[in-house]
């Protein structure tokens, strides 16, 4: 059972505030690009190139904004990348402390099983395709649920409101159509 929303909301809000107080607003989806760039540069060392001022790339997206993505991929020990690794560590420890996730849940969540049955293959396929669309959309939008929706709306950014409008306009009908049975 998750935390009561009053406790959980204040806790999560405090973390978002702490981030902007001490460093900068929270964001995650850029790091998928950074990991892609790290992997890509191993496969093709010409992908990221050092210049006199910093870094650039043969890929236009990695080279944009003065090559800041290329620079982060060349130096993965930077705040934003370590932040995401630490996020995984925090979630891992929290899950251990509350007794972990059950075996059936680990393969497919209860609500999925109630609507689509126990076979894992369909669940894995939808999770994979969902991941593709989510990250393509997040990079097109320039941020995701944490960067645009939470950090953005918290700062009263116009872009955060536009993003949230688009995300919920698609998410609510999709969820209502796909997950009719409750569990």
């Amino acid at each position: 059972m998750p935390l009561n929303w009053k406790t959980g909301g204040v806790l999560l809000g405090a973390v978002f505030f702490l981030a902007v107080l001490l460093v900068k607003p929270i964001g995650v989806s850029t790091q998928f690009v950074i990991l892609d760039a790290i992997i890509g540069d191993i496969a093709n060392p010409a992908l990221i190139q050092a210049t006199e001022e910093g870094y650039t790339s043969s890929n236009a997206y990695l080279a944009k904004s003065g090559g800041k993505y290329a620079a982060n991929a060349a130096n993965p020990l930077n705040y934003s990348f370590v932040f995401v690794l630490a996020m995984a560590l925090g979630a891992f420890l929290s899950a251990r402390l509350r007794g972990g996730v059950g075996a059936a849940e680990r393969t497919a969540p209860a609500l999925w099983r109630a609507n689509f049955g126990d076979a894992p293959l369909g669940r894995y396929a939808v999770a994979f395709l969902g991941g593709f669309v989510v990250l393509y959309g997040a990079r097109l939008a320039g941020g995701c649920t944490s960067g645009h929706m939470m950090s953005g709306m918290m700062q009263t950014a116009l872009s955060g409101y536009i993003f949230a409008a688009g995300a919920f306009a698609a998410a609510v009908p999709t969820a209502i159509l796909m997950y009719r049975k409750e569990a």
């Binding site: 995650v28 939808v126 959309g137 939008a141 320039g142 645009h148 116009l158 688009g166 609510v172």
Partner: peptide, 26 residues
Amino acid sequence: KAAYAGVFIGGLMLGAGWAASGFCPG
């Protein structure tokens, strides 16, 4: 972050994938 048309289009895509998979990037 900047506001541009792609923010809304990308938001729609993220929303659909988020609802289907139950996950967002973080």
